[in-house]
């Protein structure tokens, strides 16, 4: 149990630092800003109580907000992910898996399932984020472009880091 808490805290710090000091400073295209901190919520053990997931997602979002000088957009969009994550977990995992300490990754879910799981969550998160950020429909096409490009980048990064840290044993 304490090992899980320590590991989660470690992941929190690493992902937050990477997001704030590396990804937010990258400027590949003006329309593409990947947000990898969604991965932190995806990675939580499947048996985590729902209210802890919600609380952790708010804390993560607010941390990103404070350090990148935004006013609660990350917190809002990530808290939403925190509350819908439980539903998707029960959709993708068998009942006995949701009781154990599984962490959603390619190793445990298989590539296709993990890709679908991550894509759904990332696209929902990015859609809320960019909608709230612009707060108008007048630039709809550009918001859409932002959502699509950033989502692709985020999903790619999450898959890449998953490969890197949770190697599949064959």
């Amino acid at each position: 149990m304490s090992r899980t808490i320590l590991l989660t805290a470690f992941q929190f710090i690493l992902i937050a630092i990477f997001q704030i000091f590396v990804l937010s400073n990258l400027n590949i295209l003006s329309f593409c800003n990947p947000m990898i901190y969604v991965w932190f919520i995806i990675l939580l053990p499947t048996s985590t109580p729902k209210w802890i997931v919600v609380l952790l997602s708010f804390i993560m979002g607010y941390t990103i907000d404070v350090f990148s000088g935004q006013s609660g957009i990350n917190a809002l969009s990530l808290t939403f992910i925190g509350v819908i994550r439980g539903g998707f977990i029960s959709l993708f995992f068998a009942d006995k898996d949701t009781q154990s300490n599984l962490r959603p990754s390619i190793k445990d879910m298989g590539f296709t399932n993990f890709l679908i799981f991550v894509s759904i969550i990332v696209v929902i998160h990015h859609t809320i984020y960019f909608m709230v950020e612009a707060f108008s429909f007048s630039e709809f096409f550009f918001i859409l472009l932002r959502i699509v490009l950033s989502s692709i980048a985020s999903i790619f990064l999450i898959l890449f880091f998953d490969f890197l840290f949770f190697k599949t044993k064959r």
Partner: peptide
């Protein structure tokens, strides 16, 4: 309920 409270807090901040 926690979600509603935190979401409200975020909207207040924004």
């Amino acid at each position: 309920f926690l979600f509603i409270f935190l979401e409200g807090l975020s909207i207040y901040l924004i």
